[in-house]
């Protein structure tokens, strides 16, 4: 591996001033992307500045939503009960990312800043309306995650800036979210297509949700929808791998938002999502197949979200 020097600052200020004073420097968190890129000669920094030992990047705050530090490893995030209960889409992604060995060192900040179109935590953070908190010379600023992704490997931050945390709003309990990663093999594979969604129902529908036959399997849920006119207050759909960046399928969202959820609106949303996708033929899958799978996964994540919202209310 090409030689580099390695620095271990203990505070954000120290990290930033190191970055400013060193030439050709790069931040490193878990290193599961950065070191692979160096080994593959895709980049060759002279200095790596480690963010792993800065305590303020590992905070977890549980008031008015959830704030999670950027340098928390996936395995630690999995243990946060609130993520499992209220931010299920993110929990789904955390269980599916890489392997145990990777989850034991890779950080959520790294997954987002590496900005791969297949980044597992990206779609969940998009549907969960996450805010990215960024520290830099001019202080701290917040960017909605939808504005943070720019393209493959590029994000809306200066090289010297550090993502410190992600803030997730609190959602009403009649909310459900889900993430599905479509791969060729169960473990250790990058997604061929991935989708996440979140559905927040109207407060008035709570009793209806409670009545909903939650014992029915999620596969039968769509057939039951016509008997239960559920009003969708807020809908979020995000897709991974089928565009240069993980993105929100906003036309598909508007097929559901402010409307009743039924077979018709669900089908429209899935078809719109497939239209919005721009998949390519690659070694991992062909474009036509990916587009078809967008429809399938969009439907599955929405139904799973609905099921989870029902479970939260029952």
């Amino acid at each position: 591996m090409k030689k580099f020097d390695y620095h271990i600052p203990k505070s954000l200020e120290e990290a930033l001033s190191l970055f400013k004073s060193l030439e050709n420097a790069k931040y490193i968190a878990g290193g599961t992307d950065v070191l692979v890129n160096i080994k593959r000669k895709k980049e060759s920094p002279s200095h790596l500045i480690s963010l792993r030992n800065i305590d303020s990047l590992k905070v977890v705050e549980k008031k008015d939503g959830l704030k999670i530090g950027s340098c928390l490893i996936h395995q630690e995030l999995l243990k946060i009960e609130e993520i499992r209960t209220y931010y299920s889409a993110l929990y789904d992604a955390l269980t599916k990312l890489g392997s145990k060995q990777i989850r034991n060192v890779a950080t959520i900040g790294g997954n987002i800043c590496n900005a791969a179109p297949s980044a597992d935590t990206a779609c969940p953070l998009l549907v969960l309306d996450a805010q990215v908190v960024i520290f830099g010379e001019k202080g701290t600023r917040m960017v909605p995650i939808d504005d943070f992704f720019e393209g493959p490997g590029t994000v809306a931050k200066e090289e010297s800036e550090i993502v410190t945390s992600f803030e997730l709003p609190s959602f009403p309990k009649y909310t459900g979210s889900a993430y599905i990663k479509h791969t060729r093999r169960e473990a250790m594979d990058l997604a061929m297509v991935s989708a996440a969604s979140r559905i927040t129902f109207a407060a008035e529908d709570q009793s209806l949700l409670r009545d909903f036959l939650s014992s029915k399997g999620v596969e039968e849920l769509d057939k039951e929808l016509k008997n239960y006119p559920l009003f969708v207050k807020e809908a979020r759909i995000a897709l991974g791998v089928v565009a240069p960046r993980p993105f929100r399928a906003k036309k598909a969202e508007s097929c559901l938002e402010g409307k009743f959820l039924n077979e018709e609106t669900l089908r429209e949303a899935c078809e719109k999502a497939a239209e919005e996708a721009q998949p390519r033929d690659t070694i991992r899958g062909e474009a036509w197949y990916r587009r078809e799978m967008v429809k399938v996964l969009t439907k599955r994540t929405i139904l799973l979200s609905v099921k989870r919202a029902i479970e939260m209310c029952s």
Binding site: Y6, G31, L35, R52, K100, I102, V105
Partner: peptide
């Protein structure tokens, strides 16, 4: 106590 890939573990982080 955590399983990690030694090939991607910077030696200085072992300190």
């Amino acid at each position: 106590k955590r399983a990690v890939n030694a090939c991607l573990y910077p030696i200085l982080e072992v300190d």
